[in-house]
């Protein structure tokens, strides 16, 4: 029973730190978004990507810090401190709890596991649906070696990057017929920049790492991440063709083409997604990118602070676990 009891305590502590880090990151995200908005898109994208991993990093660092005294005692038994603290639950591998695992706590863990399974199943179903569509878009019969893209025989004006591991550019015959060679070059440069940066894969990772954030905050964060990736690729296309204004013109041209076909437009939206923000950014002077040395130094400092506070964190965790399991 003792090893089961220790496992229960570690799982409960892990759940607590996961929820706490989700709440902390959710609360701080609006301020982070406001802070990085004026940054160059490439730097902003790196910062937001790191921030989207923060719930995972903070939760793991908190759990590690809380377990540190027990891990140290496991390696160097002379540092075992449990003997000095009687009368409460020990988050310790040397002195695991001897009482039977608490049924209500197991129920809590089962509920958390169930919630996670339902969320994962939903995401997996979405991924499978997307994968089926992607497979059909990447039909090798549509490969156009000269263009370096797959050409989809449809009138709808489409230019896409499809796939996660080995993404490929797909353009529609309808789009090729309605734009100039220079316009097409802008779009191909933009999509190839996404492929080089592995943006689709990074977006999936960010989506998975932010699953415990408050939903509206998570949506804002992922939307800002997507916008920064789009703007980074707009800048890359602008550099490749030597004309940022042309990129803005092509974005508007494709937006206009997408508005034309009757019946193709999805649920009407009047805010225009990313188009206004992308075009307005291209009309401004390019912003100079910079490093993330300060945010990274802050993150390292916060981790060190957590580890330095491992003793009090360990005891607070034990007290809370004691209250929960009795």
């Amino acid at each position: 029973m003792s090893s089961l009891g220790a496992l229960q305590l570690v799982l409960l502590a892990g759940l607590g730190f996961a929820l706490l880090s989700g709440a902390v990151v959710s609360a701080l995200t609006p301020a982070v978004l406001a802070r990085v908005t004026p940054w160059a898109p490439d730097r902003r994208h790196r910062a937001l990507l790191l921030w989207s991993l923060a719930p995972l990093g903070l939760g793991l660092a908190g759990l590690l810090a809380a377990l540190l005294p027990s891990l140290v005692a496991l390696r160097w038994p002379a540092h075992d401190h449990c003997v000095a603290h009687h009368g409460h639950v020990h988050l310790c591998f040397l002195h695991p709890p001897t009482h039977a695992a608490n049924a209500a706590s197991w129920m809590l863990l089962a509920l958390a596991a169930g919630w996670f399974a339902v969320r994962s199943a939903g995401s997996l179903a979405g991924l499978l649906r997307a994968s089926r569509v992607a497979t059909r878009l990447l039909d090798p019969r549509h490969d156009d070696a000269a263009l370096g893209a797959r050409v989809l025989p449809t009138e709808t004006p489409l230019c896409l990057l499809v796939g996660v591991v080995r993404p490929a550019v797909v353009v529609s015959a309808g789009l090729i017929a309605q734009v100039s060679q220079a316009d097409l070059a802008v779009m191909l440069h933009h999509e190839r920049a996404h492929a080089m940066r592995r943006d689709t894969l990074l977006r999936l990772l960010a989506g998975a790492a932010t699953v415990l954030l408050w939903r509206p905050i998570r949506a804002r964060l992922l939307r800002a991440l997507t916008l920064s990736a789009e703007q980074s690729c707009d800048e890359a296309a602008g550099r490749a063709v030597g004309d940022r204004l042309l990129v803005a013109e092509v974005i508007l041209k494709v937006e206009r083409l997408l508005q034309m076909p009757a019946g193709l437009a999805p649920a009407a939206a009047s805010f225009g997604g990313d188009v206004p923000a992308r075009v307005e950014a291209l009309l401004e002077a390019p912003r100079t990118s910079g490093t993330l040395s300060r945010p990274l130094a802050l993150a390292a400092l916060a981790t060190l602070g957590l580890l330095a506070a491992s003793d009090p964190l360990h005891h607070v965790t034990e007290s809370l676990l004691g209250a929960l399991t009795h």
């Binding site: 569509v133 709808t156 896409l160 508005q259």
Partner: peptide
């Protein structure tokens, strides 16, 4: 595609699921 069913694995040059309003454009 237009209903965002492949968004997890597809990125479009111009977003497919939202349109800019005519005044914006």
């Amino acid at each position: 595609l237009m209903h965002g069913e492949a968004d997890a694995m597809v990125s479009a040059f111009v977003e497919l699921t939202e349109r800019a309003g005519p005044e914006h454009l």
